[in-house]
Design a protein around this nucleic acid. Structure first.
Length: 187
DNA sequence: TAGACGATAGCCT
DNA sequence: GGCTATCGTCTAA
């Protein structure tokens, strides 16, 4: 088990995505008891051309315009799922990488690799390891299967530009635990 | 209704 | 380090 304190979901997520993204680093995320410590996030704002919410609500991004502290799950490149936490309406934080701590065996089986660094180091890998898919789109983060806990005060947080986008690519809204070997890429 | 493209991962060189 | 598979979603006609 991970020794951390509970968090107040509603107030924690009712803020700007950039702020939440930074503070999520070091927090523990478990889905059905499987997960670890968040080491990499990206913020997506409502007036952000790179955000799915930029062109307004659609069937796909509806969760982004719902209440804060809920999950927004979408399929990327027609292949894998990406997990986001909704903040203020129209904004969200993409969870990009975890340091695996709980349920290593389950994750290894789902991922088909025993290499701890390859289990959750990337948005698609993370959702596969935690068995996150569209059935959790819109689910409350305060209820099972989700479990979030505040971590110890973030150590060194590295900041950089977001990955894999073409619009607003220069905005430094990617946050990571400096020096962690579990990042999807070096900062 | 068709066409274009994307918040990637994994394999190959 | 570079290339490609693969398909849901959006946009335009």
């Amino acid at each position: 088990m991970i020794m951390t304190a509970p968090i107040d979901h509603s107030s924690f997520f009712s803020r700007a995505a950039t702020e939440v993204a930074r503070e999520l680093i070091g927090c523990a995320l478990l889905v059905d008891g499987v997960g670890g410590r968040i080491v990499e996030t990206e913020a997506y704002a409502g007036d952000d051309p790179a955000s799915h919410s930029f062109r307004g609500p659609t069937a796909r991004n509806a969760a982004m315009f719902g209440a804060p502290a809920h999950a927004y799950v979408y399929r990327s490149y027609g292949i894998h799922w990406c997990l986001n936490f909704v903040c203020l309406p129209g904004s969200a934080v993409l969870i990009r990488a975890l340091e695996p701590l709980a349920g290593l065996e389950v994750m290894a089986e789902r991922r088909g690799t025993g290499n701890p660094r390859a289990l959750c180091s990337g948005p698609g890998r993370l959702t596969q390891a935690l068995a996150v898919d569209v059935s959790l789109d819109g689910a409350a983060l305060s209820r099972p299967p989700f479990h979030l806990e505040a971590g110890s005060r973030p150590a060194d947080i590295a900041v950089g530009p977001r990955i894999g986008i073409t619009k607003a690519a220069d905005v430094p809204w990617r946050f990571g635990l400096a020096g962690s070997p579990f990042l999807s890429r070096r900062m």
